[in-house]
């Protein structure tokens, strides 16, 4: 129980702190990044760049480890096929991301900043996820 929950709790807390510190819980910053042809705000480039750099190093450790530090084995995605579902889904997600300037992580993190707005977003997001599940039960 502790081994199953403590690492994710620590990771989630670090993640939420990083989102807030990097301005990603501020929809104006996110929409500013997406406003490439207007008043462009490059802050998100630095956020994603910092995160990708750290993770590029972390990935180097995986082949050298017999198992994760607190779990019996790695369980990682192994698909490489490009499907219409992947691209169509990413396209829809991008539209939603642009409309309100929120994606799932900042949506949950914003529960600590503006609970009303964040709850509406997260609830609608979960409904959207459930709709896909109901439409495609095998997926």
């Amino acid at each position: 129980m502790i081994a199953r929950t403590l690492p994710p709790l620590a990771a989630g807390t670090l993640f939420g702190a990083g989102l807030a510190l990097g301005g990603m819980t501020d929809p104006a910053r996110v929409r500013g990044f997406l406003d490439l042809f207007g008043a462009w705000d490059p802050t998100l480039v630095f956020v994603m760049g910092g995160a990708v750099l750290v993770m590029a190093v972390a990935w180097r450790f995986v082949p050298r480890m017999a198992h994760p530090l607190f779990a019996p084995k790695f369980a990682l995605p192994d698909r490489s096929d490009l499907t219409a579902r992947l691209i169509g889904g990413a396209a829809l997600f991008g539209v939603g991301w642009g409309v309100a300037g929120l994606c799932p992580g900042p949506g949950f993190a914003a529960l600590a900043i503006e609970p009303g707005a964040a709850t509406i977003f997260v609830a609608a997001m979960l409904v959207g996820m459930a709709i896909v599940r109901l439409m495609e039960p095998a997926a």
């Binding site: 997600f93 991008g94 939603g96 409309v99 309100a100 997001m125 996820m129 459930a130």
Partner: peptide, 10 residues
């Protein structure tokens, strides 16, 4: 936005 993000990410 939430509906689109939920459907799109799944």
């Amino acid at each position: 936005a939430g509906l689109l993000v939920g459907m799109g990410t799944r």
